[in-house]
């Protein structure tokens, strides 16, 4: 059953559709950055709605860090086979060959080499002048001030002091050659909105969001899933089977699981509402140092 007219979620849906149509109409060559996570899957769903009965008039692009959960790749391939949408997959093969991994090289360096740099390189190579991302303002402090149309320099940098004022629902999509805009149609959604929407719209998401028995080890207070044989265990570590789920998805060595019994959407939402820790805590990348997300954004990470 789709969201009902006159509700908060319908307003958010309409706003996101409006934003996507503005981008399709004003930009020469937009792309939707698809991370396979729940937010970008909601974004994909909204793109289907925005242009129906046409197909979304832009391709989707996935930056494959080579360390993502296996279930994510499977989900992505099945989804795009069903929809018949254009998908570009970007992989830093040199980095993979050189064996860059989150265990030996640290999350900062690894994320930069396997995600941020390939993303920037691909945006430049394809000449995309607008890229949709699933960022939300409620996620993190530096994002609370993010624009819906976030201006990026030709080197894909983000200068928080040099962002355009954004008034009413009028978005300024003009860029010079080489410059681009990151577009966040979900800016005004909260995590709860996303889950409620997934539930109401019956949107298929990666099974990792649902609790199941999975092999995990505890590292520095975070539960890490042993997703494949590349996971190097410390001498004292033995994988244990625990009923866990993930609140966000990314590279498995950097994504903490939470112990949970929630194996239905309703249970997930209920659990989430009782939760006392915020979503990004499961991301190792955020608390490397204070203000770390802001630094990554300046460098071009989403």
């Amino acid at each position: 059953m789709p969201v009902q007219r006159g509700t908060h979620l319908k307003r958010l849906e309409d706003e996101a559709i409006h934003i996507m149509r503005e981008v399709a109409a004003e930009f020469r060559n937009p792309v939707l950055l698809y991370s396979i996570g729940k937010d970008s899957t909601v974004m994909l769903h909204l793109a289907r709605k925005a242009f129906y009965p046409s197909k979304p008039p832009f391709p989707f692009m996935h930056i494959d860090s080579t360390w993502e959960f296996q279930a994510m790749g499977e989900f992505r391939d099945r989804l795009f086979a069903e929809l018949g949408f254009d998908l570009i997959v970007i992989r830093n093969d040199d980095g993979a060959k050189a064996g860059i991994n989150p265990f030996d090289h640290g999350s900062n360096y690894y994320t930069n080499v396997m995600r941020t740099e390939p993303l920037k390189e691909a945006l430049t190579r394809y000449g995309f002048d607008a890229a949709f991302g699933g960022g939300r303002r409620d996620e993190e402090k530096s994002r609370a001030k993010e624009r819906v149309f976030s201006f990026r320099t030709a080197s894909h940098g983000w200068d928080p002091k040099n962002q355009r004022p954004e008034l009413w629902h009028i978005y300024n999509g003009r860029v010079a050659k080489g410059e681009s805009i990151r577009v966040f149609p979900l800016s005004n959604w909260t995590e709860l909105d996303i889950w409620q929407y997934i539930m109401l719209e019956n949107i298929d998401i990666v099974p990792l969001y649902y609790a199941a028995e999975r092999p995990v080890v505890e590292r520095d207070g975070t539960l890490i899933m042993v997703d494949d044989e590349r996971m190097v265990l410390e001498p004292h570590e033995t994988p244990e089977h625990k009923k866990v789920r993930f609140r966000t998805l990314g590279c498995y060595p950097l994504t903490g699981a939470v112990e949970s019994e929630a194996d239905t959407l309703q249970e997930i939402v209920r659990e989430m509402m009782i939760a006392r820790t915020s979503e990004r805590q499961g991301r190792v990348i955020d608390h490397d140092e204070a203000g770390s997300m802001e630094k990554k954004k300046r460098e071009g990470y989403f």
């Binding site: 409620d138 001030k145 962002q163 203000g291």
Partner: peptide
């Protein structure tokens, strides 16, 4: 008060959206 510069100066210099 989100951005680092603001925290250091102790003032809010941009529009932040809160939910």
């Amino acid at each position: 008060d989100g951005l680092e510069a603001e925290r250091e100066q102790g003032i809010t210099i941009d529009v932040a959206y809160r939910f």
